[in-house]
Design a protein around this nucleic acid. Sequence first.
DNA 1: ATCCTTTTTGGTTGATTGACCAAAAATTCT
DNA 2: AGAATTTTTGGTCAATCAACCAAAAAGGAT
Lengths: 181, 181
Amino acid sequence: MARPKVYDPAVLGAQMRDVFWQKGYEGTSLSDLVAATGVRSGSLHAGFGQKSALFAAALDAYDEAFLGAMDVEGRGRDRLRHYIDLLHNRVTTDPAKRGCFVIASASEIDRHTDENREAIQSRIRQMQMYIENAMEEDGVRDPDASAAFLGAVVSLLTLARCNVDTAILRGIRDEAKRRLG
Amino acid sequence: MARPKVYDPAVLGAQMRDVFWQKGYEGTSLSDLVAATGVRSGSLHAGFGQKSALFAAALDAYDEAFLGAMDVEGRGRDRLRHYIDLLHNRVTTDPAKRGCFVIASASEIDRHTDENREAIQSRIRQMQMYIENAMEEDGVRDPDASAAFLGAVVSLLTLARCNVDTAILRGIRDEAKRRLG
DNA sequence: ATCCTTTTTGGTTGATTGACCAAAAATTCT
DNA sequence: AGAATTTTTGGTCAATCAACCAAAAAGGAT
């Protein structure tokens, strides 16, 4: 009884995610989004809301890549070893060197709305809990080791954008695995 | 034989540094800079050049805080232990939670000019060499340990902005020191 | 005191930004 | 076919952006 949407909100979210991912929040304009999606600004506003809502949708579309990727095989610290291998591999083979959308967004967290700020921080907290839970599968509760592992993930994803020597990224990965015992 | 500058370029650089530091590169406008410095945009352009040159000056004004702070007492890995203590302390007591200007700039590195991109990366490289040199003072050459320490610094400075549990920041600091032996 | 040089002022520029809206188009249901 | 409903189109809107410039102001040198 109504005109159907011509775009798929899910693929639209993914397209916007890629733009925000590469250009940052302030760095992407509405017209950037229009150019990347082929959807006019009027439709974007009607379908989602203002810019901050577009970003929220982009963040949702990223979950599969960041938190979803944590569903990796193994148990306990084995899963963490596989996870950081996966991250390192993904990050070093990305020709665009985009690093991680969440971490990049965290670095410009001041410029987000309260709502999106919370959404970003929540994802980092989820990462922290994922790490702690994985270690507890081995009966290990070591807050400092968890923090160090989270730090390794964060630094890996940050430095991936910076053209640093690849030996550094490898070193961070290997040390993180070594520390797990 | 000419009208003297009414502003001190050094303090002007420091003022601009603080604005860029808090708001990011794209996030700060010329009028932000004018408001913070009291110097009109015409003078800024005449004295420095376009926006990217203003940022370069701000980056220079930061060196004392980032690389200059590495002149901490001790030798070898002792110096690294003091350094990360200093960083942790500085970062956790900053009410504005600004983290590190260089790391924050690295996260939006795509949006900088080639020149500033290089300036940012160069500072990270300097940090890496500082770490390696410090370890070599103890006769230790351990690229993975250096990478891990650099990772700890980067993650500490990144997460400092994100309202994460302070225990995480402490954990990252302590693990970095522990790994040094 | 007057010239000379440089800084500063105060403004304009054209482009771009995010936000919004009314009218046209598209589709399903009756 | 026509009514109802939603999306899309294409545009406007004020605000802001970075960049630049001519003229006024401020000294130091002579």
